[in-house]
């Protein structure tokens, strides 16, 4: 019995990282994902801030799930989320002013990140606290990985650096458009394309080998 519940918890955790990855599969929370990912550090910071808000709000929403009347639930969720975002906003300002200026208004815009409201509504409001936290943590880490994949590629191509360390020496001509707005769209498009190709290959392989799937 214990093994079963553990396996189920692990499955909840993995859902956000791979099968339902918020950036690459659900394509939610695009605004911060594209706006702040000009460097790997920014991407990680934004990912961690979002994860923190996600886990805390899902915990609170899950604890209050029997108290909140159905009619005002969305308003309640938004106020809960906004409270934690304010906390994160002040923490980042206190820890690193440089980072705070780089992320700008996008820390406060975590409030309207569809992933958080979506998780609160679709998952946390229907599950007990432990399950809700596990799922939220998985989603948060999945989101962070997605941001990191975007930010890393854009920093390497657009500035020739990774975490601020120069990679290619002095002769490298940076591909500046990658750190400008169009680059965000292109890199995310390219990642989605890559995943689509992989999925297509897998489908073709399954159908030719004839194993497993029944049409």
């Amino acid at each position: 019995m214990k093994d079963l519940s553990q396996a189920k918890n692990f499955d909840e955790f993995l859902e956000g990282i791979w099968r339902q990855n918020p950036v690459f599969v659900m394509v939610l929370g695009m605004c911060p994902a594209l706006a702040v990912t000009v460097s790997a550090v920014n991407a990680l910071a934004m990912g961690f801030a979002t994860t923190f808000v996600l886990v805390c709000s899902c915990l609170l929403v899950s604890l209050m799930r029997k108290l909140v009347p159905k009619e005002v639930r969305i308003a309640t969720y938004i106020v809960i989320i906004a409270t934690f975002v304010t906390v994160v906003d002040y923490i980042i300002q206190a820890v690193s002013l440089e980072l705070y200026e780089a992320l700008g208004a996008f820390i406060q815009l975590i409030v309207v990140n569809c992933i958080i409201l979506g998780r609160a509504e679709a998952h946390a409001s229907k599950h007990p606290p432990l399950t809700a936290i596990t799922n939220a943590l998985g989603m948060g880490i999945g989101f962070t990985i997605g941001l990191f994949a975007l930010g890393g590629v854009r920093e390497i191509l657009g500035a020739g650096k990774f975490f601020g360390v120069s990679l290619f020496g002095a002769n490298f001509q940076p591909w500046v458009v990658m750190v400008l707005p169009p680059g965000g769209f292109f890199v995310l498009g390219a990642w989605l394309l890559l995943f689509a190709v992989i999925r297509r290959r897998k489908e073709v392989r399954l159908s030719t080998s004839g194993g497993g799937h029944v049409a």
Binding site: V27, G183, F186
Partner: peptide, 22 residues
């Protein structure tokens, strides 16, 4: 091509549009 259809293509389009707006 079938693989490109959907969100990936929309994002590429948005990228081109964004470049024009630059």
């Amino acid at each position: 091509p079938g693989v490109v259809q959907g969100t990936a293509l929309s994002l590429m389009l948005a990228g081109l549009l964004s470049m024009a707006f630059m």
